[in-house]
């Protein structure tokens, strides 16, 4: 189920503007990789290239290679829609479909893949996904109510349930806790620790404590100045990044001297 990602020499553009330059990194399977760095350094832009969501904004493009277990996601014959079915994503703000019930939200991805599914099968998927997202106990009695009736933290777990319902190879999380209160954040972090057993997880976070708590490997991105492209400064085991980083900029950032 979980696969590794190898990125080499990736440049990301918005029109003519080079937003992220020359990223090369390896993301291990069944682990949590955190991206940290100051605002505007291209973390979110970069994570969106891993499921080819970057290119839905008109005028954007990507150069370089992203290999998912050796298969190039940017190969000429690759359909971005298929890529996105293999790589799930959770966004900064919880975004369950407001016009769908909890149940339909969880099943949304499945219905795209194969339209026909027996009700009992669908019930199983809903329960398994909601249990996987630690939401089953809170949601089981209100599966037919709209997703927008949940609290922010519950909505975010619903989005995680929706993403894992299709059993993706990789789960990308773009600041999944930045709109949540500390208790909901804790719930999501616990969930990430459980999900790592089965999924490759990449998480963008502004919260360095969070990166230190949940991740195995950490990548530090930085930007030289406004208008300059973001770059990957260094990537290493999380403990090393936070205790004994190789670069001065990383040390300044994790010790709170800037950013």
């Amino acid at each position: 189920m979980s696969k590794r990602i190898d990125v080499s020499d990736l440049n990301v553009y918005y029109g003519d503007f080079l937003a992220v330059e020359g990223v090369t990194m390896a993301v291990e399977a069944r682990s949590v990789t955190a991206f940290i760095g100051p605002s505007g350094c291209g973390k979110s832009t970069f994570i969106r290239t891993l499921n080819r969501l970057h290119e839905v904004v008109p005028g954007t493009r990507v150069e370089g290679k992203v290999l998912l277990d050796g298969q190039d996601l940017y190969g000429p014959a690759v359909d971005p829609v298929v890529v996105r079915r293999q790589i799930g994503m959770v966004f900064q703000r919880p975004n369950p479909f407001p016009t769908m019930s909890l149940r339909d939200n969880v099943l949304a991805g499945i219905k795209l893949n194969n339209s026909r599914m027996r009700k009992s099968e669908a019930d199983d998927v809903v329960e398994r996904s909601l249990r996987g997202a630690n939401l089953w106990n809170e949601a089981k009695d209100r599966l037919d109510t709209p997703g927008s009736g949940l609290s922010g933290g519950q909505q975010q777990r619903l989005c995680i349930a929706r993403a894992i319902a299709v059993e993706p190879d990789v789960l990308l999380m773009d600041e999944p806790c930045s709109a949540l209160d500390p208790i909901s954040t804790l719930a999501i972090e616990d969930l990430i620790a459980e999900l790592k057993e089965n999924y490759t997880i990449v998480i963008v976070t502004h919260n360095m404590q969070q990166a230190a708590r949940v991740s195995d490997r950490t990548a530090f991105f930085n930007i030289a100045g406004t208008g300059q492209p973001g770059k990957l400064i260094e990537m290493d085991d999380t403990t090393k990044i936070f205790t004994n980083p190789g670069e001065k900029a990383t040390e300044d950032y994790v010790s709170g001297r800037f950013g």
Partner: peptide
């Protein structure tokens, strides 16, 4: 909201879906 459109795209929806 772009948020909802991207939610669908990230699940692997085509533009029509």
């Amino acid at each position: 909201p772009t948020l909802h459109q991207e939610a669908a795209l990230a699940l692997g929806a085509t533009r029509w879906e």
